[in-house]
Amino acid sequence: MQAVLNYPKIAVISPQGCLNAANALEFERDMTTALAQNGISILVINLAAVESLDSAGLMAFLSVHKLALSLGRSCRLCAVAPSIRIIFELTQLDRVFEILDDEVDLTAT
């Protein structure tokens, strides 16, 4: 008997700078577009270059997370700087999102 492994298709988005009220809708639209592509089952958001995050940015993450769940897909975060991670921890959103150390962790999922 032969084992067949199906690896999910992964889309990676790497925002830069500030995720705030000024650009949250555009960021959400980009994430939604990536997640809605046929064949994509995991959306990874690489936050290595994100300097700050406000409540509008958090709402964009939550909106895309809800969309991912409704589509039977997953949304994960990676390379989250300590200053950004604390925002997820204070809001307890670190319990909602799977947070990976870096993109290399994807091979283990």
Rank of each mutant, 00 (worst) to 15 (best):
L77K: 09
V104R: 05
V50K: 09
L93P: 00
S70E: 14
I87V: 15
S70A: 14
L77Q: 07
A24P: 04
L35H: 00
L67D: 13
I10K: 01
E51K: 11
I99E: 04
V4C: 07
F61H: 02
G17Y: 00
L100M: 08
L67G: 08
M31F: 07
V80F: 13
S52I: 14
A60P: 01
R95M: 11
L47E: 03
V50H: 04
Q16T: 14
A56C: 15
L58D: 02
R29G: 01
I40L: 06
D94L: 03
V4K: 11
S52M: 13
T109H: 14
S63M: 06
S41F: 11
A56H: 06
I40P: 01
L106K: 02
E89D: 03
I86K: 10
T32W: 01
S41W: 08
A21W: 00
K66M: 12
F61T: 01
E98S: 11
A11K: 09
D105P: 03
L58H: 03
L90N: 02
I86E: 05
C75A: 14
Q2Y: 11
N6K: 14
D94P: 00
M31Y: 04
Q2V: 15
E26I: 02
V50D: 05
I86L: 12
D105W: 10
Q2C: 12
R85A: 12
C78P: 04
G17Q: 05
T32I: 10
A79G: 10
G57T: 11
A24W: 05
I99V: 07
S74F: 12
I84E: 00
A79V: 11
E26C: 06
E51S: 10
A11N: 05
V80N: 09
M31C: 13
T109P: 09
L25F: 12
I45M: 10
S83C: 12
I45G: 03
I42G: 03
V4T: 08
A3H: 11
C18H: 08
D94Q: 07
T32G: 05
I42W: 02
G39N: 00
G17C: 10
I99T: 06
S83R: 09
L53W: 08
L5Y: 11
N38P: 07
A36G: 11
L5S: 14
V44C: 13
E103T: 11
L53K: 05
G72E: 08
V96A: 10
I13Q: 08
G17F: 00
Q37K: 05
A108S: 09
T91G: 04
G17I: 03
A81D: 02
D101P: 04
F88G: 03
C75H: 10
L69A: 12
C78I: 10
N6I: 12
R76C: 15
H65W: 12
L25N: 11
P15T: 02
K9H: 03
V12P: 07
L106R: 04
S83W: 06
V44S: 08
R76K: 15
L93M: 05
F61W: 00
L5N: 07
P82F: 08
S55E: 06
V12T: 06
A34N: 00
Y7E: 15
G17W: 00
I84K: 01
I10A: 04
